[in-house]
Design a protein around this nucleic acid. Structure first.
Lengths: 109, 109
DNA sequence: TGCATCTATGTCATTATTGACATATATTCT
DNA sequence: AGAATATATGTCAATAATGACATAGATGCA
């Protein structure tokens, strides 16, 4: 896991922190968090590629700027469903999303 | 979309039915439903491959048999998050899930 | 037939997620 | 500096998702 990703997780209440802390998570939890973080990064990458602000995307998604920020931070109050909706609104097709899901640390999608 | 998939959607309140009805869905909605149905099929395939009953899987997931049934039926009250949790509990790794997501109609994962 | 097992579906109280709002920080202008 | 824009984070009322339960249908077996 790269530093930037770790910091994003730490910042939110994931209690991930150092690599050690990850050992406190079951492999299942870790896999789910990894997928969520990958999707959140893909969302940000796609939004920026479209030249949209969080506010602009929020309007397209019928959501709010603050929620987009939380989505991109992989906040624990954000569902994967919501991340997928965001990606789809930004033109991601299932295969794009599939690619982002498995990504080891990139932000493709 | 194959007949079996369509029937599963029809059965639940998706109002998908015939191909025409699909025209009532935005491409975004259609993409999300497609992914959800693919995941639900992957879940059933994986559960059966493990020789588990819905009840047995429910216990592993700390859920209930009725919810597993709804998951496999892609019921509208089932989140993609829950489907992913189910798949992960059944040993699916992110790349397996990615593969299932993009699937056109199969049940791999 | 009766009994056990598996799956489907409706309901509901509890819990989680959501959009909206307030507010803070940062950056880039003039 | 002050104004404008973008992003981050906490809170909360409204809504959605969840597990549990009841119950029905289906299948197989004694």
């Amino acid at each position: 896991m790269d530093k930037a990703k770790q910091k994003r997780l730490e910042a939110r209440g994931w209690r991930v922190g150092t690599a050690e802390t990850f050992l406190g998570l079951s492999p299942e939890e870790a896999a789910l968090i990894e997928m969520k973080v990958n999707l959140s990064q893909a969302l940000r990458a796609r939004r920026e590629a479209h030249g949209l602000s969080q506010l602009a995307l929020a309007k397209r998604l019928q959501s709010s700027q603050s929620r987009i920020a939380k989505m991109e931070a992989a906040d624990r109050t954000v569902s994967i469903d919501l991340l997928l909706r965001g990606l789809v609104v930004l033109g991601a097709r299932p295969r794009d999303i599939a690619r982002a899901l498995g990504q080891k640390s990139g932000a493709a999608a």
